[in-house]
Design a protein around this nucleic acid. Sequence first.
RNA 1: GGCGGAGUGGCCAAGUGGUCUAAGGCGCGGGUUUGCAAAAUCUGUAUUCGCGGGUUCGAAUCCCGCCUCCGCCUCCA
Length: 469
Amino acid sequence: MRLYDTLARETKEITPIDGAIYGFYCCGPTVYGPAHIGNFRTFVVQDVFRRTLELGGTPTKHVRNLTDVDDKTIRDSQAAGQTLKEFTGQWTKKFHHDCHALNCLPPDIEPSAVEHIPQQVMMIEELIKKGHAYAADDGSVYFRISSYPEYGQLSHLDERELDLGKTQSQRANDSDEYEKDSVADFVLWKVRRDEDGENYWQSPWGEGRPGWHLECSAMIREYLGANFDLHSGGEDLVFPHHENEIAQSKCSCGGDFAAHWFHITHLLVEGKKMSKSLGNFFRLDDLIEKGAKPNEVRVALIGAHYRKQLNFTLDSLHAASEALDKLLKAERALAKLAGVDEAPSYEELIGLEDKGLFENAWIGLNEDLNTQRAIGAMFGALRRSQNESNPLAQWKGLHFMLQALGIQLPEVVEEVQEEAPEVIKALAAQRWDARSNKEWAKSDELRDQLKELGWLVKDGSGDYSLEKI
RNA sequence: GGCGGAGUGGCCAAGUGGUCUAAGGCGCGGGUUUGCAAAAUCUGUAUUCGCGGGUUCGAAUCCCGCCUCCGCCUCCA
């Protein structure tokens, strides 16, 4: 498939380095609270990407880390009166729960920063030995940017004027200040401070904890090696996080690091950056509370190309919900036409050759992961599929695309249709009698009454059904 | 201030030189169906792509200028 590469600044055809399997690293969440839908745009897009690679026939080794030690996790765990492990454990669990609800495939490996302290310490030692890092008097260790002339290639630092003066004055009043040779140098190891409490580890430079950027480099090295295929994250990570990763990794273990960089643009909510003060800050649970299903949220999150600022609104969520409904109903109709019922599994669809009319949708996904184009093509294919001679092939093609997008089927998603209570049933029966006797006024009144009680009556020919609203 | 992205119908959003009098979804209008609704289904819905110039046989797509919006600029996906 073709994918835009942040480093090369162009769309490139991707192929696995070893010719067999894609090494795919994603910067995971900092587990200090429930993730918001902005986080999930990134994770859902990464999931669609992974599914596209795998369904296309090439397996992936998907590694996504958990940041379970940093300023925020330490600060908030102490505020909550919990140990760091208890605190991050609880939010890790919540993250997994939300990912599952959104139908994201779990990564093959999900390493945590706390569990890889020795690897990080070892990396720092190497960097010091090679002259790329230095220990400050207070016991913190910094990466020396001047030792790596290529620094800044990903974010094109040479083309930018960083307002370092401003940053420096801000930092002067910041308790976070450490002693550095140059303001641009970034921290690899942070010396223990009082507010860290019991959250510190031993190192050759004394007690402290690793810097944030280092964990990814260390875990990538451990699980994917010095050369791997794809590195992904939110657009905000380009600088400095990924820039620093490149510096640390290339200077310590050599190699080319990531062959391809894949960044997901942040979403907007109601046209603005999501923030608590604007009241447009949504977590998955906030949307579920508003009646949305995770499946619908997922569709809304892939409703625009990943390199555009998707404008998420409650309207767009409603649109996604209606569109999803239409897709799934069409799936049932096509299944009936094809005389099949049990949907093929993800594994069964891997490498499917004949996608029927859905070939176009698949092409869309393979052109820089154009999800919106793919969805549009699916509707087009559905319309024409009615007249096709081979409904089974169309049905399979549809399922192939549903799996690629990670759209769940209703039997998985929808709770069992709730049985109406006797009172409701009695009222409905009463209404049916009135209707049969052409007592329209009475019939309509009862229908309104049922609606107020939360039940929708649908008349068929000679029968009716009840549906909970 | 620097870097990057974007402005397409009421809303969301594809399309980046001819098949575009611009995909698809939502919404809205109409038909079929219905006692009326709901549901279902069919159907209509931008001669026009922020504004002004230019290049070209031909531009939403390329160039120039302007306006507006958004993001990033040291630990936020």
